[in-house]
């Protein structure tokens, strides 16, 4: 019995660490209580939302390619999971970057719906 518990705990820990972009899409859709829209995500990504920058200002309008920080010019690895397997696999990083970047581009936090839409769109990019 104890062994089963240990195995179960290990499996749970492993699954909690290695998340996939789809897991985040599901999480934000659940939080929003609505399915994501690819079109809305594409529009949101490319358009300025009140701030000086849009998402595309740094990540480009085709985030399968590398981006450039709009201010410092530092290279940014591609955001689309198809081009960069590391993206959307770590909850702490996903939460950190949505928190900071939404604040920079929208001057507020992003809604769960907005996050779901963007991820849904990013997942369509090949």
């Amino acid at each position: 019995m104890r062994h089963i518990l240990i195995i179960a705990a290990t499996l749970f820990a492993a699954s909690a660490q290695a998340e996939t972009p789809r897991d985040f899409l599901t999480r934000f859709e659940k939080e929003a209580g609505a399915v994501a829209s690819v079109e809305r995500g594409a529009r949101f990504f490319a358009t300025k939302q009140g701030g000086e920058w849009s998402c595309a200002s740094c990540h480009t309008d085709r985030p399968t390619q590398a981006g450039l920080h709009a201010k410092t010019g530092k290279a940014i690895t591609p955001l689309a999971p198809a081009a960069n397997a590391e993206r959307f696999t770590d909850a702490a990083k996903v939460d950190k970057w949505f928190r900071r970047n939404c604040n920079d581009t929208l001057n507020r936090v992003c809604s769960a719906q907005e996050k779901a839409d963007v991820i849904a769109w990013l997942l369509t990019l090949k």
């Binding site: 201010k71 702490a92 950190k96 928190r99 900071r100 970047n101 604040n103 920079d104």
Partner: peptide
Amino acid sequence: LSKHFGSDASID
């Protein structure tokens, strides 16, 4: 860090 030269660079 939340207002780091105009950007939000907050960390845990």
